[in-house]
Nucleic acid binder design. Structure first.
Lengths: 238, 238
DNA sequence: GAGTGGTCTAGACCACTAT
DNA sequence: TAGTGGTCTAGACCACTCT
């Protein structure tokens, strides 16, 4: 474990345990240097991460303070370390997540998909439509496109479980990041039928582009979520 | 301007101008050290920021690459530098943004507000309900709570324009960060009436807590957005 | 093995806050 | 003016990729 990570985790834990409480001042960076036996830059990096995570606030000239967070929010931030990238199989670990496959085929990429995945004119992509169920209840309907050039030999069985596991564990490709756009609209016919929603009733629409560690986009997906189990949380720093 | 910021801006500009294109490899960090006459750590910090912004990808052992972004997305990321914190008056600069005030009063804080703003039992808060119009069309309905202890002497006229400007320019307080939760539901009676929406039609609900640079929460707000002008974009790094 | 980016240091100097 | 965190450096050493 890297030093700055270990220090960040330690301080996060102390905030979680109430050793450092909301509005408390943290020890000075010079004191932290001594207690952890590291240089100034290393302390700074650890605190930078905690600041980006929304846990603390730094003020040049004054000191470093735990944010005045409601205890609920504090718990969330100290436990799940930052944002989730990977599929629901991980997010809902412990629950029963099942996929029903409505489509699994290879097609020539539609214009929007071509643009998002930076593909040539007549590139082939997988076109996968799945409904995800959590403990038997429909959660979301996902339409996903992936170029066959990057993800060879994807099978229906992978889509039934976790496509992301196949990509990482079998193809040994690293997922580096995702770009997301969240919007809202009424459910269309397919969505209302497959998710047992009234037509036109509210759904969250999340469009995502996923990138590999070499910078190439390998997945463009549009997921509509049933409202009761959808919440997206972010922290914005000025 | 700080060196690492200047370098980050310069490289962002070069990506925007197409000097570095999607999938291109950037110059090696050692070369960048020479061209900008700075140390390794300074180059690293500049690139770290561009990576967090979703523009580039770094691979130890291989090099640094521009992400394979669709040209639309590239433009967005290179121009608006990262996420927005501050009120609509800034986001929609150039457009005509007007507020209609439905409520402007001081009340004892409800339980949820007390928790979010970490207030004592019978603290007073402003309770402000506004409808925001963009070029004459209703955009959102915002219910906002702020403790009178932190924000003294707020007037109706401030709510009519920008509360954030009052806080920054008059009170000289710095807004450091915001925590956001986005959800979806059907419009209630007030929302449908004030925003000319069918009852139960989809709206985005954003709950936000804003923090000052001393770590204190000073504003808790619940905003419901009409769907046509709402989109929230985020970049997630593994 | 040659080459990439990453971590960490010790210390000089800077920018901001408080009193 | 004392004390806070921030920037930047030059260089040692490390972890990973690719051939």
């Amino acid at each position: 474990m890297l030093k700055y990570q270990a220090i960040a985790n330690d301080i996060r834990q102390k905030i979680n345990d109430g050793i450092y409480k909301p509005d408390d001042q943290l020890p000075l960076t010079s004191e932290l240097e001594n207690t952890y036996h590291v240089s100034k830059m290393t302390i700074k990096r650890a605190l930078d991460h905690l600041e980006a995570a929304g846990l603390i606030v730094k003020r040049r000239g004054s000191g470093t303070f735990v944010k005045g967070l409601a205890s609920n929010d504090l718990d969330k931030l100290t436990q799940h370390s930052s944002q989730q990238l990977f599929g629901m199989s991980k997010v809902f670990a412990g629950h029963n997540v099942v996929s029903k496959i409505l489509a699994f085929e290879v097609i020539t990429a539609p214009a929007e998909v071509m643009a998002k995945l930076r593909l040539d004119d007549d590139s082939f992509v997988y076109h996968i439509v799945r409904v995800r169920f959590l403990d038997g209840k429909p959660l979301s309907l996902e339409t996903s496109y992936m170029p066959i050039s990057l993800i060879p030999d994807l099978r229906r069985q992978h889509a039934e479980h976790s496509i992301f596991s196949y990509i990482r564990d079998t193809l040994h490709l690293n997922i580096q990041s995702a770009h997301r756009i969240v919007q809202v609209r009424g459910a269309n016919e397919l969505e209302s039928k497959e998710m047992s929603l009234a037509p036109g009733s509210p759904v969250a629409v999340v469009r995502e582009t996923y990138f590999l560690s070499n910078g190439l986009p390998f997945n463009y997906s549009i997921t509509t979520h049933e409202p009761d189990h959808f919440a997206l949380e972010t922290v914005v720093i000025a």
